[in-house]
């Protein structure tokens, strides 16, 4: 299944085309179920989540804009977001948005990317330029849905240190990916 083919199928789901929905399910359900299992780590929970995810896909297909995101990325983002919402509802974590996001200016960050400017870099290239433990923290957060506290425990650093690690890593990644 090409990305264009998948994009067309999602557009057809937006037209309430059941056959297209069945085809998309056949093509993508294993990947999306893999996402649910990895994040939720509970089979029954992952099965519930997968149902909700395809209901959302059916409902949201009409607003899918192909130029904005790749169709596979669009589907996987719906799956990840739903699985993470479910995980956070099950195991609440502290709110953070109202706290300060101030970091020292990262222009002089020793981790700043040293790659020559040019074509857009892939995430794995940019992760390779973070210190190994920090790249690992980013991966665990994204892939497993790990919380700040879980990451702090795993890497045996204080919670605030972990926040600073990840936020700095995000700024470094952004510069690397966009440059």
């Amino acid at each position: 299944m090409t990305q264009d083919g998948l994009a067309l199928l999602i557009a057809r789901i937006g037209l309430r085309d059941r056959e297209a929905f069945a085809l998309v399910y056949r093509q993508t359900s294993a990947k999306l179920f893999g996402i649910c299992l990895r994040i939720l780590k509970d089979r029954a929970d992952a099965e519930e989540a997968l149902q909700d995810i395809y209901v959302k896909i059916w409902e949201r297909a009409v607003s899918f804009v192909p130029g904005e995101t790749s169709p596979a990325g669009w589907l996987q983002a719906i799956a990840r977001n739903h699985a993470i919402d479910r995980l956070r509802a099950r195991k609440p974590v502290a709110d953070a948005i109202d706290e300060a996001y101030d970091l020292a200016d990262s222009t002089d960050d020793p981790e700043a990317c040293a790659v020559a400017a040019g074509e857009r870099r892939r995430i794995d290239v940019c992760l390779g330029e973070l210190a190994a433990a920090r790249a690992e923290a980013v991966r665990r957060a994204y892939v497993e849905g790990a919380s700040y506290q879980e990451l702090a425990d795993h890497f045996a650093v204080p919670l605030n240190t972990m926040r600073t690690w990840l936020r700095r890593s995000l700024l470094t990644l952004r510069k690397c990916l966009e440059r």
Partner: peptide, 14 residues
């Protein structure tokens, strides 16, 4: 930008 990390998810047939 981060969607490349989706490669880490192994497909599992539901």
């Amino acid at each position: 930008n981060l969607s490349g990390l989706d490669d880490a998810y192994q497909p599992v047939t539901p």
